[in-house]
């Protein structure tokens, strides 16, 4: 349970980080909070020549409001999403999800960017990027590009980030008073990865739900938008019939696999129950 020997670099700019990756001929791993990477190194699932520590890169830090968009630096720690006023006000789904992510000490160290870059299908924050309609700011040797959350999560642990690219920041359309949101998950023990989980962000016009975005996790290889369920609630008030229709529609949105612990049919059932709970507790969230 010890990592293989590696060299260590702590670049102070994105350019230096890309140079370090190139200098290792790509046999390098980036480390942010290390809360997923260090166990992977200890178990020797990965054994890079060089560990490139991203923690000293200024562009990856801080949270600020740029007009209508909240820019969340990739190095923002899980714990900060619970305390940072700008996140609580404008990305309330992140703050609502954070208490469900791991345990307090892991939240003190793990970063939002690390979680999104890893894209564990059972993780809370990647799915919330989908629900919030975030854009990922990615740095490569040729400069910066932006990828929408809907195009970012591609397959199991596979995102739009190419080898050697760095997730620099998350750009979230700032939520305001007109928004409603809800987050919930079902796990066997507190802090465990969820059996199913999800979040909803929408606008409310009187009693009517507008532009709903529903994202679920632990229901397949990537977090997923529940587009059929969204279509059932868009433009409607959330009465019992509408909620039941959304729950029925959800079946076509998800494709869980059987695994050793949880059969696919059980995940489908839990997802329907969870969606009902989420829709019943949608409320003003910032």
């Amino acid at each position: 349970m010890k990592a293989r020997a590696f060299a260590y670099a702590r670049p102070s700019s994105l350019a230096e980080a890309h140079a370090a990756f190139a200098g290792a001929d790509g046999d390098a791993s980036f480390i942010s909070g290390g809360q997923s990477l260090v166990p992977a190194l200890a178990m020797r699932l990965q054994a890079p020549q060089v560990l490139i520590d991203l923690s000293a890169i200024p562009e990856m830090r801080g949270v600020r409001l740029d007009g209508e968009t909240l820019r969340i630096g990739a190095l923002t720690r899980h714990a900060e999403t619970l305390t940072e006023p700008l996140i609580r006000a404008h990305a309330p789904l992140l703050a609502a999800a954070a208490p469900f992510v791991a345990h307090p000490a892991i939240r003190n160290r793990g970063t939002v960017g690390g979680s999104v870059a890893l894209a564990d299908p059972a993780s809370e924050f990647p799915a919330m990027m989908l629900a919030m309609g975030a854009e990922m700011e990615i740095s490569g040797v040729d400069g910066m590009r932006r990828v929408a959350a809907d195009d970012f999560f591609q397959d199991l642990y596979q995102t739009a980030i190419e080898p050697g690219e760095i997730l620099v920041a998350l750009h979230v359309p700032a939520a305001g008073p007109r928004h409603v949101c809800a987050f919930d998950e079902m796990a066997r023990r507190r802090g465990d990865y969820a059996m199913v989980g999800g979040g909803i962000l929408a606008e409310r016009d009187g009693a009517v739900i507008v532009n709903p975005r529903i994202a679920l996790f632990s229901v397949g290889p990537t977090p997923v938008r529940a587009r059929n369920a969204e279509a059932e609630i868009a433009g409607k008030a959330l009465d019992a019939d509408t909620i039941a229709a959304a729950q029925r529609a959800l079946d076509a949105d998800i494709d869980p696999l059987d695994d050793a612990e949880i059969p696919a049919a059980m995940r489908r059932h839990l997802a329907r129950v969870l969606l009902g709970r989420l829709l019943r507790k949608l409320e003003t969230c910032s």
Binding site: V38, P39, D53
Partner: peptide
């Protein structure tokens, strides 16, 4: 040595972290 048991907690810059999930150089 994988963040699961919590026996290794220390305060790093004042907050609890798992010392098995931090390399000393960090």
């Amino acid at each position: 040595e994988m963040g699961a048991c919590g026996a290794c907690l220390v305060l790093l810059d004042g907050v609890p972290v798992h010392s098995c999930l931090v390399f000393a150089v960090q």
